[in-house]
Each structure stands twice: as structure tokens, then as C-alpha cells.
């Protein structure tokens, strides 16, 4: 019924949502891209990265966890929000060891693509060069914690989609990291290369072994179009039809 539809605006453009949809989901459906890293279509909202933070009636809210409501006035692409998003992404870069120049995820990496979309040239914060470890014990999967951005996609995918619960967060603050529910190594878990959790990492922290660089430069996800273009183009295509 028409009366069930929720109507609100994002940057002055009227957007409609179904009851229960988050601002992010409604924006996606409307072809409005709100930058995000931890959110994923197959996963429940989590609110880890805060990059999708928008101004809702003048107050900052995470678009991925906030339900859409009638009459909301949402600001998405403002100078201030964009700068905040840059700052968050920059912090993610300096708190890990992200060497895009040789990373096999380069060109397909959502963090790298976000940095390009936000026109980040160099982080404003000093690099931390943290000491992170690599778990290569699994025959088909490698964990490189140098590149982890703590989005919890793997934690949620393993628990909610694979029904395995392989990953958990341990530690707090700068000591926080994704760990595995076993004594020490990924090989001790029941993780399988076909698990959803293997594919869902936005960066190169969880990778399939022996498949790196198989997609040539020029054919990778973000070689020609910025991240979010799929959402924006879907709307443009719908309008032209």
C-alpha cells in the first residue's frame, strides 16, 4: 500500500523507503551512494566503520544502522562529512600496513577504492607501522592482519551465513584484532575456501591462496569506475528506461 512508504530527503532529493529499511538500504535502492566499508548487502547492519555517517535532522547517525523515517532531512555529500570520511579512511591506512603497490587486492580493494573516491592523496596522520602477523597455516586461505580494517564482515559472514563462527574480535583499542575460534591457527578451524567468509573481506586481509594477480590490470573492479558507481548507475539506467 502506498501509505506504507516512507518519504525523506537526501541532500534535497526525495527518497522513498519501505518500513524497516535502513537509510543506507533506501539510498542504495534510490541510486544514492553513501560511502561505506563494513556494510554488505548479505550481512546484517553492524556500524563498525562509521564511514556511512550522515547528518539526520542535523545529528550524525550511521546510515547503515539507522532506520529510515518519514520526514527525515539527511545530508550526505557535505564538505564536513566528506572530510570526516577521509579522516576515518586515513586512520585505517595508518593503523595498518597497507602497501597497495604490491597488494594482490589492489584494484579490487574497497579501502583503496574509497581512498580514490574521496580523493585522498596522503594521510594527515602519521603512519603507525604496527607489528601484525600473518596466518598461512590453512592450505587454501591466508590471513594477513597487516591489512585488516576490523569491519567484522568475516565475523558476521562466518557466523550468520556459513553457520561456523570461525572469527571473533579479541583485545580492545589499538590492540583489537580479528582472531579465530581455535587454539592458534586458521588450519585448526573448519573454515573452507568456499565459505562466504573467504570472499567477503573488503581488503586483502583474507585471501584465497595462489590466486593473486590472476585478474589483469584494466579488468579489476575499480580500474575504470569509482566504488559506488554500480549503485549510481543502476538508478541512471532505470531513469533512462
Amino acid at each position: 500500500m502506498m501509505s506504507d512508504r516512507i518519504t525523506f530527503t537526501i541532500d534535497g532529493v526525495e527518497v522513498q523507503a519501505d518500513p524497516g529499511q535502513t537509510i543506507l538500504q533506501a539510498a542504495d535502492a534510490a541510486g544514492v551512494y553513501i560511502p561505506r566499508l563494513c556494510a554488505h548487502k548479505e550481512l546484517n547492519p553492524f556500524g563498525a566503520c562509521r564511514i556511512c555517517t550522515v547528518m539526520v535532522n542535523g545529528r550524525p547517525q550511521a546510515a547503515c544502522t539507522t532506520p529510515a523515517a518519514n520526514g527525515m532531512i539527511i545530508e550526505n555529500e557535505t564538505e564536513e562529512l566528506t572530510d570526516n570520511r577521509r579522516s576515518i579512511v586515513e586512520m585505517l591506512f595508518v593503523e595498518g600496513n597497507h602497501y597497495c603497490m604490491y597488494c594482490e587486492k589492489s584494484g579490487n580493494c574497497e579501502l583503496q577504492a574509497m581512498a580514490y573516491r574521496l580523493s585522498i592523496m596522503v594521510p594527515r596522520h602519521p603512519y603507525q607501522f604496527p607489528d601484525k602477523d600473518i596466518d598461512g597455516s590453512h592450505p587454501d586461505i591466508m590471513i594477513d592482519r597487516n591489512r585488516c580494517i576490523l569491519c567484522a564482515r568475516c565475523v558476521r559472514a562466518s557466523r550468520d551465513l556459513d553457520d561456523k563462527n570461525v572469527f571473533q574480535f579479541v583485545g580492545r583499542g589499538k590492540e583489537k584484532k580479528v582472531w579465530i575460534n581455535s587454539e592458534a591457527k586458521l588450519s585448526d578451524t573448519d573454515m573452507d575456501v568456499t565459505d562466504k567468509a573467504t570472499d567477503i573481506c573488503p581488503v586483502g586481509a583474507i585471501i584465497k591462496k595462489r590466486t593473486g594477480y590472476e585478474i589483469p590490470i584494466g579488468q579489476r573492479a575499480y580500474d575504470h569506475k569509482p566504488i559506488g558507481s554500480d549503485i549510481e548507475e543502476a538508478k541512471a539506467t532505470a531513469e533512462s528506461n
Partner: peptide, 14 residues
Amino acid sequence: QGRPYWEIPVLVQR
């Protein structure tokens, strides 16, 4: 040292 072997041709050319 410690890096996965398939990464090396791209890494070491730097």
C-alpha cells in the same frame, strides 16, 4: 620474508 610466494614477482620488482 614472511610474504606469500605468489606476491613476490610483484613485490620484489619495486
